[in-house]
């Protein structure tokens, strides 16, 4: 019956689509623990995210080789600051990168030490300066030693 021909075409397309789908869609794609609404996904992607490369290794990692510096910092006012915040992410150092790039800019120190009078924030309790008036154009490390900032505002040299 010629009137049924379009129906056969549609059915054939549906079958082709289903076959193609079985090749294209991986076996681990489907509904998982969280149900259809929130848990319809490709399971192996979870492992892919878990294997993403870690770049920030933490100060314990730094301390395994740079024990002296780590010890010095541990008793300083800056003890809560991670090495990598200023020295950059360690990644696979010392293999890759061979040397870390230290940020010595005024702007790095000013992240915390621009004086901001914010009554409901802990920021106002940090010793700060006005960057437009305080020794313009000079690097902070000329006078201040970040690893030995034992007392706030103290000049070390």
């Amino acid at each position: 019956m010629h009137v049924l021909r379009p129906l056969y075409v549609v059915l054939a397309l549906a079958v082709i689509m289903l076959i193609a789908r079985s090749f294209w869609v991986p076996n681990d794609f489907g509904t998982h623990e969280q149900g259809y609404t929130y848990g319809w996904y490709r399971q192996s992607n979870v492992e892919e995210w878990k294997n993403f490369t870690v770049k920030y290794r933490g100060k314990e990692f730094c301390g395994t080789c740079h024990a002296g510096q780590a010890q010095k910092l541990a008793s300083a006012h800056h003890k809560d600051i991670e090495c990598e915040n200023c020295h950059g992410p360690a990644l696979f150092h010392p293999a890759d990168p061979l040397k870390l790039v230290l940020d010595r800019s005024r702007e790095l120190c000013l992240r915390c030490h621009t004086s901001l009078f914010y009554p409901t924030s802990q920021r106002s309790q940090i010793k700060g300066i006005n960057p437009d008036q305080h020794n313009l154009g000079l690097e902070c490390t000329l006078c201040h030693k970040p690893h030995e900032a034992s007392k706030p505002g103290r000049r070390n040299r």
Binding site: E107, C112, T114, L116, Y118, T120, S121
Partner: peptide
């Protein structure tokens, strides 16, 4: 890069200085 200035960034290159005595509360 943190907040290294007291000026508020209003966007489109405009900044606003708020005098210290006018700040009632401020937080991050």
């Amino acid at each position: 890069n943190g907040f290294i200035t007291g000026q508020i960034d209003l966007g489109r290159g405009k900044f606003k200085d708020i005098p210290r005595e006018k700040i009632k509360k401020a937080f991050f």
